[in-house]
Write a protein that binds this DNA or RNA. Sequence first.
DNA 1: CCTTGCCTTGACGCCGGTGTCAGGGCATAC
DNA 2: GTATGCCCTGACACCGGCGTCAAGGCAAGG
Lengths: 126, 126
Amino acid sequence: MLIGELAERAGTSPRTLRYYEEHGLIRPRRDANGYRQYDDGELRVVNEIRALLADGFGVDDIKPFVDCLRAGNTAGHVCPDSVAVLRRRLAEVDGYLEQLTGVRQRLREQLSQAIEHREARCLLNP
Amino acid sequence: MLIGELAERAGTSPRTLRYYEEHGLIRPRRDANGYRQYDDGELRVVNEIRALLADGFGVDDIKPFVDCLRAGNTAGHVCPDSVAVLRRRLAEVDGYLEQLTGVRQRLREQLSQAIEHREARCLLNP
DNA sequence: CCTTGCCTTGACGCCGGTGTCAGGGCATAC
DNA sequence: GTATGCCCTGACACCGGCGTCAAGGCAAGG
């Protein structure tokens, strides 16, 4: 399978696949032409990568998951290294959630203050 | 007050204040030397700007708040334009929260799967 | 032979708030 | 005069996951 086909099957672009390769996530064989040659299993790997990226992992966090899949495991997240990354990311997400929750509360306070302010003005100018 | 003093009083840097000015948020007078001259009220404005940035607003969202403060209001968020921006940002934050919550749930599922997987392996190799 | 369409590598652009460096002016104190 | 320390403008760097363009090779069909 050439890069264009894998890209289409994975719902992404050749550029993206080359980017993953540049970061050590995939290592296709090369044809005599120099063309990248992927076997069917790589589709799963690419899907795993894209799922992790969509969940906010960085490319450099993803390597353990890929290695885990390649080692023959049924899922990329069952290996110790993956678990460590998962824990780290979970803590990070919890931090963001806390922060965003604070922001949300301040926004709501400001909105309700603004509404009170408008009502007060109406009472002054009846 | 020169830019260095205002920067220190606001807990930031001259570079940052020039950036705000570049984006139309502050408009200091100029001394004969060309030095920026700020009056004391600008400290409040800068504090408002920094509070909004810390809550995830972009510099271009912040102008209504500054204008509102300058118009003599007790707070930057009581004017209609500010309220519109607040609502937009609140919706955005709600979106992020939803997304992050989904991510968090997936992370926890994967972690618990990994633990189950390890336990299963222990049972197989007693 | 020429076109078409895939492939290759390399490199710049984006976004946004700020750090940082370059190169130069002004002010105050010695 | 000069040393110090502030000020000025302008411009590049950062981060990260790509998009996109450039310039060229290879394969297959007319």
